[in-house]
Amino acid sequence: MRRLYPLIIVIMLLPLYLVSLSTVASYKKAQLRDRGVSYVLPSALLKITSLEFDELMSDYLFLKALTFYGGTLDRTERPRIKKEEWLWMYDVLNAATDLDPYFLDPYYFANANFTWEARMVKEANTLLAKGSRSREWDWMLPFFMGFNEFYFLHDNALASEYLMEAAKRPDAPPMMETLAVRLAYKGNRTKIAIVFIQETLKKTKDKITRRDLEIRLEILQDVLALEQAMEVYLGKYGKLPRDLKQLQARGIIAHIPKDPYGGEFFIDKDGSVKTTSDMFVVTK
């Protein structure tokens, strides 16, 4: 009988053990569900504490944000992710990219989710700017920034600057510069657009592309000349001319230049010079 005591004690304790295990596990699970957003250590401190494993810590933080985001997919409430949770995710991704600023995935994730879903476009672009500085070979990050500025923030001038940056980088699709120049022109950044085309011309060997660029350069130089003439007019008469013919009538310009694409130059409502061809061949 005495030999059976240990067995009996173990059998009696076993249910207690199982109950306590499952209870603690369920508590723990509830805690995990609430945890979600918590404090993120500042990256300066993370850099010190992660010793030589900065990159690993960066991967870990990114996976943390990623799995948190994935965990919210089965939520039923709307909006699915609360504002503070988005802010927490931003902090995590920010720390991850401080530890490894070259890591593409956090930028990619931020761009995909902070813009459309969270409407935290400024934050997304702050992150992307960090990535764009580090990953100087990657045209995608400035392109994303340009798109966000254009589509969400409606800042064409800035958008065009980013797209121009993107176009300068290796393997950027050729349409990038076309986009950039058109945005620059619409955003009244004629000079930037001119410099940009001149730069691109230096690198372009293809004859057809060169001809397009040269025509566009010609138009932009005309636009710039007209804008400068308008400034002279403003200085003389204290107001902007109503149309370009006034500039000619007052002798500030000899003649109104012709648009090689077949459009006509005019003064837009915002006081900038534009052309009816919008820098495309006008089909009549």
Partner: peptide
């Protein structure tokens, strides 16, 4: 689980393992 830079994460983990 990594979306894009699989190479980077793979090298991170491999080298960190050797170092550790």
């Amino acid at each position: 689980i990594i979306m894009r830079e699989v190479g980077k994460v793979a090298v991170d983990i491999a080298l960190s393992t050797v170092s550790f």
